[in-house]
């Protein structure tokens, strides 16, 4: 009797364990899994937003099609990651030399409250001349971020100020506006520059 009871409990235990494993699989890897968070950005041609560049031109994703493009998000009140990204990109562009002028390179602010057109103009002026700074109303910036599957969030700091958490990678698109790859900000030049060259050659192949 005791032995039988033990077997019964054992079988029930195994059943519960099996069910738990199955439920776990269903929710994590199986059909019930949530959409992966790091989704692929839309092609530029499928994005819709209107912003203003640092020279007060009205711009949108359509302006970027026709040439390979690098886009990244940041804000000018960011003391560490953003100037590092901008100076890294400036370094990559210097290494590309003349080819750099065949690219669109766009810095979209996630902090339009402080990053006015004038602020963006002054800031990008310190980096490689190819880099354009885009700002605009918050809802348009949110739409842009949505298209790139980028995220940003305002975080209060001690002393009454705020900082922005934001997607820090660089999006690299080919001339047709299809994503080629992401470049991590701070990726060593010997990896970043060949990735950019690939986007540039895809452009050439596409044209022939």
């Amino acid at each position: 009797m005791q032995r039988r009871q033990l077997l019964l409990y054992g079988a029930a235990g195994a059943g519960v364990l099996g069910l738990t494993l199955f439920v776990g699989w269903w929710r994590v890897d199986g059909p019930g899994a949530p959409e992966p968070k790091g989704q692929r950005p839309l092609p530029l041609s499928a994005m819709e937003f209107r912003l203003t560049d640092h020279e007060e031109n009205e711009v949108g994703p359509g302006n970027l099609i026709g040439r390979p493009t690098m886009v990244f998000f940041g804000f000018t009140y960011c003391p560490d990651v953003c100037p590092t990204t901008l100076s890294d990109i400036s370094g990559w562009l210097e290494e590309l030399g003349d080819e750099a002028s065949e690219m669109n390179v766009v810095f979209i602010t996630v902090d339009p409250e402080r990053d006015t057109v004038e602020a963006m103009a002054e800031y990008v002026g310190y980096f490689h001349p190819v880099i354009r700074g885009w700002t605009g109303p918050e809802d348009q910036i949110a739409r842009a971020a949505e298209g790139f599957r980028a995220s940003f969030e305002r975080v209060p700091t001690e002393g009454g100020g705020y900082t922005m958490n934001h997607t820090a990678g660089v999006f690299l698109f080919d001339a047709e506006g299809e994503l080629v790859t992401m470049i991590d900000y701070h990726e060593p030049r010997e990896f970043a520059v060949p990735k950019i060259r690939r986007a540039l050659t895809e452009d050439v192949e596409g044209a022939t």
């Binding site: 790091g38 958490n165 934001h166 997607t167 820090a168």
Partner: peptide, 8 residues
Amino acid sequence: NSDGVSSM
């Protein structure tokens, strides 16, 4: 973080 979002 793993989603590529930087914070300070």
